Computed example of a mutant assay.
Amino acid sequence: MNDPLVLYTHPMSRGRVARWMLEEVGAPYRAERVAFGSEMKSLPFLALNPMGKVPVLCHGGTVVTECAAICAYLADAFPDAGLAPPLAERGTYYRWLFFAAGPLEAAVTDRDLGMEPNIEQQGRVGYGTIEAVLETLEQAVSEHEYIAGPHFTAADVYLGSHIGWGLQYGSLEPCPAFTDYWARVSDREAHRRAKALDDQAMR
């Protein structure tokens, strides 16, 4: 996979997740900062992502948007990094990668916006209740060292980022399971490098 990697991002965005994943992969890449507002809504950028949002990953002629998809794509594109289990063992990996992208993000966002579903609406949303989501998540991060088993994977980059942000900004109540899991997954050189690069880009 010798095609150039380009990450379109902003240091105050979900692009931090993609940057961390790129640092875990260890392949050379170029980061292009895209300003919020008119630049993200410009025609050249909308040609990459019609949603007008970052992050966007370009790998040669392949364009990938959505953080969970970027994490999964990079894990597959660079298998030597060991960030995805063997195909026959990916059930748990896929489960929690997309649990974070679906029920967890939706439930936390709805609550933060004051839009928690009532009893009649709970059957119509993918997560049911935020209480069920958080109880499920707390149990999941307590069962193994990492979310998909004994080895760190792309699912830990994505799910861990959600938990880290939630603890930092108050959208998740601190509990031993969350704080311990975040401490484990963030204690990595790739995470420290990515954080330093994005923090520097904010200056």
Rank of each mutant, 00 (worst) to 15 (best):
A196M: 12
G160M: 07
R95S: 11
C175R: 09
E143M: 09
I70D: 07
H162K: 10
E23R: 02
R14A: 10
K41L: 15
E32S: 08
R188F: 09
I119M: 15
G126W: 11
R16F: 08
L7E: 05
P4V: 04
R111D: 13
R203E: 15
V185R: 05
D180Q: 14
R192F: 15
M115K: 15
E23K: 03
G114I: 06
A201Y: 11
W96A: 00
E105S: 07
V185P: 01
G82F: 12
E138C: 06
A190K: 03
C58G: 02
G60N: 11
Y73R: 04
A154Q: 00
Q121H: 09
N49R: 06
G52H: 11
P55F: 14
L113M: 15
S161F: 08
P86F: 08
M40D: 05
P150M: 06
V108C: 10
L159Y: 02
L7R: 03
V56Q: 06
C71D: 12
Q168R: 10
M1T: 11
P86G: 07
E24P: 04
L172S: 02
L113W: 14
A84Y: 05
H191A: 08
L46T: 08
R193H: 13
E89M: 09
P28L: 03
E143V: 04
F99M: 03
T65P: 06
L104S: 00
A47P: 05
R30M: 11
L134R: 00
V17W: 00
V64T: 05
G91N: 05
D80H: 11
E23S: 03
S13C: 13
Y8S: 02
L48M: 15
F45L: 04
Y73D: 12
R184T: 07
N2P: 01
P103V: 00
E23N: 03
A35Y: 11
G91R: 09
Y94A: 12
S42I: 13
C58I: 13
V133Q: 03
A88V: 09
G123M: 08
A47T: 06
F152M: 10
P28I: 02
A81M: 10
R19Q: 15
P176T: 06
H144G: 00
M202K: 14
L48P: 07
V17M: 12
A140L: 02
G60K: 04
G123T: 02
L104T: 01
F98S: 00
G102W: 06
P103H: 04
R16W: 11
A72I: 01
P150R: 11
S142P: 04
E24W: 03
A35C: 07
G149E: 10
L197K: 07
T9A: 10
Y73S: 05
T129M: 09
Y73M: 09
P86R: 04
S38N: 11
V63S: 07
H162A: 03
Q168I: 00
Q139D: 15
Q121I: 00
A47W: 10
G114A: 06
F98Y: 13
R192V: 03
A101Q: 10
H162M: 09
Y181F: 07
V17G: 04
S42V: 13
A106W: 10
I130A: 08
F78P: 04
S38P: 07
A27C: 10
G114F: 11
A100P: 01
G60V: 09
M202D: 14
E143L: 14
G160N: 02
A69N: 12
W96L: 03
A107I: 03
V125S: 05
Y8A: 06
P55E: 14
G149W: 06
I163V: 11
L48A: 07
A148M: 10
